[in-house]
Design a protein around this nucleic acid. Sequence first.
DNA 1: TCTGGGGTCCTAGGACCC
DNA 2: TCTGGGGTCCTAGGACCC
Length: 453
Amino acid sequence: MDAFFAAVEQAAKPSLRGKPVVVGGLGGRGVVSTASYEARKFGVHSAMPMAQARRLCPNAAFLSGRFGAYRQVSETVMGLLRELSPLVEPLSLDEAFVDLEAGPYGPALAAAGPAGGPELVVAIAEDLRADIQRRTGLTASVGAAGSKLMAKIASEQAKPDGFVLVGIGSERAVLSRMPVRALPGVGPATEQVLHRVGLMTVADLAEAGEGELVQLLGKAHGAGVHQMSIGFDSRPVVPDRDAKSVSVEDTFEVDLADRDRILHEVDVLAARCVARLHAAGRSGRTVVLKVRRFDFSTLTRSETLRAPTDDAAVISETARRLALAVNTTGGVRLLGVGVSQLADFSQEDLFAQLVHEEEAAEPEHEPESESGPGPVEEPVEPVVPVAARRWWPGQDVTHTQLGPGWVQGSGVGRVTVRFETPGGEVGRVRTFAVDDPELQPSEPLPLTEWLRQ
DNA sequence: TCTGGGGTCCTAGGACCC
DNA sequence: TCTGGGGTCCTAGGACCC
């Protein structure tokens, strides 16, 4: 999908169409998640500090994300992809690989031969793009090729709102002139290493050979980069990959210095992490604490338990213990709590299993000596988040008299709302007291009639 | 007003085991 | 009388992706 989050906002909010839109963290330490193409003209791009984006493009609309709405659109798009093949591998909310050969067009594609069938592929891709446009009101770009590598590169070239086919056999011709950075997996660090020895293009990499690349980049990465440089990629499209870790983290508006405050935030994060674990019906054996200090130095500390757990108290205590061993003088900018080595069962299953075993073995009952009575469990759940401002830019609201709209901004006891809907005209703006009882948060509206079911 | 959040994969050293 | 060679697990960090 093209500029996905920003495009959803423009589709939902008529007044933003054709205008620069920036979606991302609105706090003092936020970064840009997505910039619309209009905002990109000003130099705004993903991962840029929001403060810099505001300087570059002060007249843009700055919105925090509405992930529920993005997820809705994403599901519609993924559904369309699954009509093309059961083998759909999502990379994120707005991007996926599809193995066309495994789907209804597979036989026809095979019959057209390895280099043939471009007409059919073009037709499939353009139909898909039209369907996505019809169903979501948004544009998508499609790359088609004989491998994930080349399809990905083709889709980059197709953006925005386009289609690019890399025919079988033309991979090296397409790749050769590209900068090394165009290969997925070659980021700033790798690029620097390669540039330092004069390797600038993908053709240079192919010529250098696997030996030299392994020497420069290490075994796995070097071999992988070399394979890509000669256009070789045999990775299959894999749907439904199980997550290998679950983590949550928070950057604070102001660095945390107080030890008790840090421990409290660790508890809050552990609770959020456990909630996600529960929702996924999984447990984990390794607890990871992440700390980013005032100077942006970042470290992790982990502890592997004897068995997987999804118990909030166990994960909280472990994370706190790890936190106590970290030097936090100078202040903490970010804290994170994660769990890995995931197992497919939840704690309830484990207990049930344990009880069974104990009943079968001997009636002796050893109390869980985990921590005895220990410190009283603090109520970590109901803590009001710092960002509990009731109104945030972009938020969906409904007014009892004026109907649906969205928050443009709020401050000094006031909130400004624009009343417009996806299918309607550019709406008018009204301002209310922040505690106006006639104004309530509401659910995102569907972008098109098609999404309305 | 410097630098989010949620992931994946790889490497390297030390402990430990056979 | 002087220290092999593998394998696995754990921990920590780093690069990269969206």
